[in-house]
């Protein structure tokens, strides 16, 4: 996982006819983590989507090296399939083997439950299993702690710490405290336009 990096220069984001933020510049090298904080609607998710290449930047540039994995409020798992079937689809796409993560995430007993019957927190953990199976160098986590119980919060923080320790990058957008040693914090309100 060496060589992952993110470089953002003078980034500005516009939603509709409102400028959300401007002048955001940051550098992240392998092993680093950054939490973007700020109140609702300030542009945290938009920033992640721009980094992921899923939304256009209004101004500025984003360059990244390494595969990007994204977890947002949509788990991207077929609601009609069982959890096992929905995760198996991503395993075929990613070519990975995420079986060993399932027990740790507490999902191994839920594999025959249809995704539409899973709770918010269970879907979030399933999305983390999908992310782990993808083995991407850069993690973009959009409100990763929403709907998780305290045990799952600690687990998510531990997974992010392990990811960074093995040379990955974690970019976390959350208004909640996220405990991660050595993590930088970027208050997006400082760049509000």
């Amino acid at each position: 996982m060496q060589g992952a990096s993110i470089a953002i220069d003078d980034l500005a984001c516009r939603r509709g006819d409102r400028l959300l933020f401007r002048g955001v510049s940051l550098r992240l090298a392998a092993g680093q983590a950054l939490q973007i904080t700020g109140s609702n609607g300030i542009g945290k998710s938009s920033l992640l989507r721009i980094v992921a290449g899923l939304a256009p930047a209004f101004a500025g540039t984003v360059a990244s090296a390494g595969a990007i994995g994204l977890v947002d409020e949509r788990p991207a798992l077929d609601p009609a399939l069982t959890l096992g079937g929905a995760l198996a689809f991503w395993r075929q796409i990613d070519g990975g083997d995420d079986e060993r993560h399932l027990a740790r995430l507490g999902l191994d007993s839920l594999l025959d439950v249809p995704v539409r019957y899973l709770s918010t927190g269970q879907k979030k953990r399933a999305a983390l299993a999908r992310l782990l199976g993808q083995r991407a160098e850069i993690w973009l986590l959009d409100e990763p702690l929403n709907g998780l119980d305290s045990h799952a919060v600690a687990l998510t923080e531990a997974l992010a710490a392990e990811h960074c320790a093995s040379g990955g990058i974690a970019l976390i957008a959350s208004h909640q405290p996220f405990a991660l040693a050595g993590m930088q914090v970027l208050p997006l309100a400082d760049f509000a336009a």
Partner: peptide
């Protein structure tokens, strides 16, 4: 699109 599948495919270069 609603499930976010197209976004996940795009991230994987599909």
């Amino acid at each position: 699109i609603d499930l976010g599948l197209f976004d996940q495919w795009a991230l994987r270069g599909i």
